[in-house]
Design a protein around this nucleic acid. Sequence first.
DNA 1: CATGAATGAGTATTCATTCAT
DNA 2: CATGAATGAATACTCATTCAT
Lengths: 211, 211, 211, 211
Amino acid sequence: MTSDSRPLSRAERKKQELRGEIINAAFDCFADLGYHAAGISDIAARLGIGHGTFYRYFQNKRDIVDHVIDDLVTRIMTALTAENAPDAVSTLDAYRAQTERIGDSLARIFADDPRVPRLLLLEAAGIDKAMADRVLEFLNTATALTAAYLSHGVELGYLRPDLDVENTARAINGMIMAGALASLDAPTADQQRQFSEAVRRLMYDGIAAHL
Amino acid sequence: MTSDSRPLSRAERKKQELRGEIINAAFDCFADLGYHAAGISDIAARLGIGHGTFYRYFQNKRDIVDHVIDDLVTRIMTALTAENAPDAVSTLDAYRAQTERIGDSLARIFADDPRVPRLLLLEAAGIDKAMADRVLEFLNTATALTAAYLSHGVELGYLRPDLDVENTARAINGMIMAGALASLDAPTADQQRQFSEAVRRLMYDGIAAHL
Amino acid sequence: MTSDSRPLSRAERKKQELRGEIINAAFDCFADLGYHAAGISDIAARLGIGHGTFYRYFQNKRDIVDHVIDDLVTRIMTALTAENAPDAVSTLDAYRAQTERIGDSLARIFADDPRVPRLLLLEAAGIDKAMADRVLEFLNTATALTAAYLSHGVELGYLRPDLDVENTARAINGMIMAGALASLDAPTADQQRQFSEAVRRLMYDGIAAHL
Amino acid sequence: MTSDSRPLSRAERKKQELRGEIINAAFDCFADLGYHAAGISDIAARLGIGHGTFYRYFQNKRDIVDHVIDDLVTRIMTALTAENAPDAVSTLDAYRAQTERIGDSLARIFADDPRVPRLLLLEAAGIDKAMADRVLEFLNTATALTAAYLSHGVELGYLRPDLDVENTARAINGMIMAGALASLDAPTADQQRQFSEAVRRLMYDGIAAHL
DNA sequence: CATGAATGAGTATTCATTCAT
DNA sequence: CATGAATGAATACTCATTCAT
């Protein structure tokens, strides 16, 4: 099975490796300088390769930023879904624990490298109409995922039966975005956790007093 | 009364008028084409003026986008504060009504011209490091404002005494952002209202079932 | 006689006055900033007039610089000729005294306002092919004048009969130029006089020892 | 020996070659059109290269003119010093012969390519304050060199002991400048030689009659 | 396959000049 | 007649992309 992909070994592996390194270098450059200010030569220089080489791995500047964003989106979507399928829980407490795990997971990503939210939420949309659409689409996808969690909860009865699933999901995602943006100024894991907790309190207890 | 400001009349008034028109045209261009894709000539062409004229009113391309953003920020901050001072209410119901008014106000702005949230939330941050900072700063200011509302509520006892005011404010603003972004895809006033309602339900009732 | 030029009086006099002031202001600007760096608005601003007014007095930027240079050339040619006609002297001593007077006269001009030699010798030729020609023409005129002095001396026998009048005149003018340029670095009247003296010693005694 | 500098060979040599050609083309353009009238595209067009290529070799327009002037200055200073060290002679006759050689050398440069003195003496100073300073500095350097020759002569006793070395050197250089400028109108080698001779007669015999 | 020299499309900006007020 | 708002020609410079070596 895997044997027929082996012949590419030596060379092909090197190639894939460099390709990955270019994506990482591009990520660094775009995050540090901004997409428009970063040049192909900056990316190449960071790797010590000729900038002509870049074009052996990617069509053009616009091409690579797509791959960079792909990377980020994948990283985040993985955190959101990994071992936390929407239908994995069946009680409110379990759900709350699940959301906490997801929150922590995201917090770790954002705190680990604030350039991730910076690129995704600040830089990306300014690149292009197309990229702005991609960002919105990503948010919609994330919303759909959140909505799936909520739907499951409504179906199983541990969430309000009259919950406006779609809009609530959107609102929850907005809070996550706010957390991500907050991590740009104060990327403390602690601060992240507190924000996460505040969101959960909001979701489960509301803001009103006695009730 | 107004007579002493009249001397500037004729010419000066025309000048201010054109200045405003340039800001509007620039807003249109940046929203339609994106900051980087929009040229000074696009702005000038839209007004039927020579592009040299532009430079009589603004230092350079970077200069005007600041004014455009100023406009948007002012428009939004006005909506957030006008006749809705943080200390204007003293009961939960009144507060809820107040948040509803504010939400409607924002919804109107976003629905009226979806280019406002598009430029502010998608385009602006990608222009520049400096502009990205301005956007974050704007969000922080908005958060501080929301926090003031919440603080007032905690002090008067109609909001949870253990409310994490700062982070909750941030979370609420995140939801507003999500609403603004949603208005890009579906700028229906109706949809806005529903989202707004979902947020309020979330804030006051939480998402859990029985409770 | 003069009565028929009077009607223009009031207005016309004012006009000529302003015209002169514009020339002076232009001289200042061109000397301070250089012809290319100086703008019409700089000239107008220096006089506190609108820059549109400039065009009521001069065709264009190129036009006025001609007038400015005219001024300088006239000032210098006047010094070179005033009460010092080529045929005014008839002995070597008298000639030497004459050259000394002329030298002093020039030294005074250059020391008074180093911007005169700067504009004429450094700035002017770089403006234009046409202006470069004018500068060369001016030098040629000055050379012709000097040659006239020398011719007179040869004819009257107090200068070498085999003097290469033309080339010697050119050489002498070169020394004057050198003096003018030197005045840019050290515009001391004293230094000017010493240079002047060195030139005269060279002209009359040569540089060799015994002789 | 030269083998270890060879590695740069192929490509590097081509590069240096093109660099030199650009300098020459720039020299042509600046001399023909004047610095301000000449565009980068003129330089590139003259070589049949893309104007972007220019910027691979020089920072900007101002950068290259410095190199062009460097070239000229070097060419002239070389002629002034090559095999003609100030202390190479010890008698008046030998000195006179030396000055003749130097004069011839310069005459050849100026007659060969009148664009050299044109650019250096007419065009350059009008470019910039900085370039005007460079020109003056160049003249000062040349003066210092001439002064060294004269000092040597005074010390060895074949030049007047009371010679004002500094100012005489300046005066002599002024005559050279005049010769250079004269070559613009009549770049005949013959005319140059005559001028040169007139200067030497002036320096050694003065202008006065019998004496 | 890596390289980097060559390229030129694209654009912000300046400033002399005009002309309506 | 003075003014300065409007104008647009003119140009230096950048950088993504190509392709010969």
